[in-house]
Computed example of a mutant assay.
Amino acid sequence: MTSREIAFFTFCLVLMGAGWGATQPMTKIAVSTGYGHFGLVFWQLVIGAALMAGICAVRKLRLPLNGRALRLYLILAMIGTILPNSLSYQAAVHLPSGIMSLLLSMIPMFAFVIALMLGNDNLVWRRIIGLGFGLVGVLMIIAPAVDLGQPIPGFWAGVYLVTALFYAFEGNYIAKWGTEGLGPFPVMLGASLMGALVMAPVAFVSGQYIAPQWPLPVPQLALISASVVHVFVYATYVWLAGRAGAVFTVQVSYLVTGFGLIWARIILGEAYASAIWIALGAMFVGMYLVQPRPTLADAPAMGEN
C-alpha cells in the first residue's frame, strides 16, 4: 500500500471505530424508557433488512432461498442477533455504556478459545498470554473490591460477556462451515429477514411490540440510528477488509472500545475512576496479543468487493 492509501484506510478505520463505538450509548438510550428487548431486536432486524436490501439492489446481488441458504440465515440470525441482542438489551438497562464497550473487547479473545475448540486455530503461547490480560481486565471490572467510580452489577456484566461469546462464535461458525458460497451482504440480508420473521410473533405475543410514533421519540431515534450506523459500518468493514487486509481491519476493535468510552462520556456523562484505564490497558494488550499475525491469506484481495 502507498502512504496515501494507508492514510485513507486509517481514516476509514477511525470513522468505523467512532461509528460502532457510538452504538453502545445509543443502545443505552433505546432501553431507557422500558422498551422490551424482543421489540427492540425485532425493529433492529427490520431496519437492518431494509438497508441491506437497498445495498443488495444497488449491487445487483440476488438472495438465494434454497433450503441450505435458509438454514444458514436462521442459524446466523439466532447466534448473531436474536440471542446475543436479546441479552444485551436486557443487560444495557443495568450496565453503564462505557462498561459495555469495554466488555465487548473480549470478542477476539473468546473467538480464539472457540477457534481452538473447533480446530480452526492452533495453540500459540503469545495468544494464551493475551487471554490472561483480557481476564485481568474483566476481573477488574466485576471485582467488588475495585472502585470504578460507579457500581457495576457483576451478574449483568456476566450476561453481557455471553453476548460477546455469541459474536465470537458467529465468526468461528462462518470460518468453520462457510456461508454456502454467498457474499456478506446477501447473507446479512437473509439473516435479517429470517430473524425479523422469527421475532415478529415473539414481540407481539410477549407484549413487547413497539409501535412507531411520530414524531419519533428519542429512544426510537436512538434505535434507528444505532441500526443504520451498524449496517453502514459493517459494509465499510467488508470493503476495507477486501482492500487493506483482515489483520489491518480487525484493529477497529481498539477504536470501538476507546470511542465507546469517549461517547459514553460525551453523550451520557459517564465518568469512571482511574482503575478503568488500567482495565482498558489490560484489554488492549490482550487484543494485541490475541489477534493473528499477518499471513499471505491476509493480503489485500483487490478484486474483492
Rank of each mutant, 00 (worst) to 15 (best):
M194E: 07
G269N: 07
P215L: 10
A111M: 07
T179H: 04
K28S: 15
N85S: 11
G17W: 02
S274K: 06
W177P: 01
Q44T: 15
W156H: 13
P215T: 10
L118C: 06
V58K: 12
G258N: 02
Y272R: 11
V247G: 09
N305P: 01
A111C: 06
R127E: 01
M16L: 11
Y209G: 14
L83N: 04
T257L: 15
P215S: 12
M100K: 09
A145L: 00
E270F: 15
D298K: 07
T2V: 07
I128R: 04
P96D: 07
G260L: 04
A50F: 11
F110I: 14
A297V: 01
Y160K: 05
G39Y: 09
P186L: 06
W43M: 07
A282C: 14
P25V: 06
A111Y: 02
Q150W: 02
Y272C: 12
V159C: 07
L268V: 12
L296T: 15
G36F: 06
Q24T: 15
Y237F: 15
I107D: 01
H94V: 04
V93E: 07
Y35C: 03
L289P: 03
Y173C: 11
M100A: 13
I266G: 08
C56K: 02
A53R: 03
I128G: 08
K60L: 09
A203N: 10
A203E: 00
G80S: 03
G80N: 06
G242F: 09
L76K: 05
I266D: 00
V218K: 14
L216N: 02
T2K: 11
G178S: 07
M194V: 12
V218P: 01
L223A: 14
Y35E: 06
